[in-house]
Design a protein around this nucleic acid. Structure first.
Lengths: 228, 228
DNA sequence: AAGGCATTCACACAAGCGTTTTAAAGTTAA
DNA sequence: TTAACTTTAAAACGCTTGTGTGAATGCCTT
């Protein structure tokens, strides 16, 4: 019942220019902290102090911490999902069916574009996704499938078409294996990169890791189902 | 400086029989709650009320919440790691080199044996592992590699021998992809099973999921590294 | 200039947290 | 039984958490 006006605030451009929007400052600080520390380990006080805004402004602009979490995720999903789906349908326009590698690779550019949205956007988004899936037992899964289900469907359809020998049930499981692979990897990316740098003198950026993981996932999704 | 006596408490059998050990009651309640809700979302008050013991007994027996978490994990790792390593060396005794599928399948029995240890032990263990890796940014990874590194090494060596065409660095990444796959899958196993049951009339127990994920992981680990 | 609205601010609140403390109860050994 | 010790019990501590309140501030419109 509070803040109904927010919905109609068309932001007529009367904000001062010297300082970014409070709402944006909160989102920017929150997403970074959420990604690297998790949702429940990140207090609103830490967020607002990093954002240099007042504590109460979170509840004023977002209503609650839970809604702030949703807003943080939605800011990425609203950009990524349409872009990814567009790439998928563009790929499917081609005469011959695409390989799984091609389909997964198609997602790389939309993911990397999140970096131009905000610095470190790609990995932040994937880490948020992973944390959300694990921490908020089921809530995020519900939120994504209900709000972005159409985009997901086009992706799943493309995958199924590229691997017609995999039954639907099996594909359901394998795509969730894939989600786990990418999301856990990105959540641990910093730690893994440190180890890789120390043990193998190899440092990978986000794109390099993505390109490493794609063959892994594509092979796993397409491998024939054991008959026994 | 407190509770040094605990180390020397040889437990001369003077406990009453009608009620299980307080320490065990705490561990049993804690592992279940930790697995399904996460560490920081599980309060000591919730644990002790489920275990029907006094709140202070956690700090008396374990010193702190952090040490309780370690104890919960160690109780599984101390059983699983030696068993798994034993199976691996037994497999390597055979003349021809084992396939990746065989190596991964070798881990199934030690994992399922955790179910005889405690009801639901297998999935609890894997969920704890996943939560630990993601929540305790790096602490658990350090704990495991320092305390159980020898066991891990024998497993990694076996995998490398079965996929000699994969460079060491690449294998490092792929084994962590694999960890992510299994751990994320198990952390979401309940939710996924619900969806699978609703959409495909298929219900899988822990073993069935493990057997589904093994071909996926084995194919991913062994897939040739792209040259470009 | 004045009124109105959106936003910011400092502060307080109640609840929950991990941990500590002090006393009571129970068990073993002399 | 007494004495020493381990284990449980109840209560409180200090701290942090998310959230609510009411006043002050700033910006725009009239």
């Amino acid at each position: 019942m509070i803040n109904l006006n927010k919905c109609f605030k068309l932001n007529l451009g009367y904000r001062m220019a010297s300082r970014t929007d409070t709402k944006t400052r909160i989102l920017d600080a929150a997403e970074k902290l959420f990604a690297e520390r998790g949702f429940s380990e990140t207090s609103l006080r830490l967020i607002t102090s990093k954002a240099e805004v007042n504590l109460a402004s979170v509840n004023y602009h977002f209503g609650s911490k839970k809604e702030l979490i949703r807003a943080v995720l939605a800011r990425y999903l609203d950009v990524f999902m349409p872009n990814a789906a567009a790439e998928i349908v563009a790929l499917q326009k081609s005469p011959q069916t695409a390989s799984l590698d091609e389909i997964f690779s198609t997602l790389i550019q939309p993911l990397l574009d999140l970096n131009t949205l905000r610095s470190g956007g790609t990995i932040i988004f994937l880490q948020l996704l992973g944390r959300g899936y694990i921490e908020s037992q089921g809530h995020l899964r519900w939120f994504i499938t209900t709000h972005y289900g159409a985009y997901l469907a086009s992706f799943i359809a493309a995958v199924k078409q590229s691997a017609p020998h995999i039954p639907a049930v099996e594909m359901f499981w394998r795509l969730h294996f894939t989600l786990g692979t990418i999301v856990f990897t990105m959540a641990s990316a910093d730690a893994l990169n440190e180890i890789a740098a120390a043990d193998y003198d190899e440092h990978n950026d986000t794109e390099a890791i993505l390109r490493k993981v794609i063959p892994y996932m594509a092979a796993g999704v397409a491998v024939p189902v054991p008959t026994n």
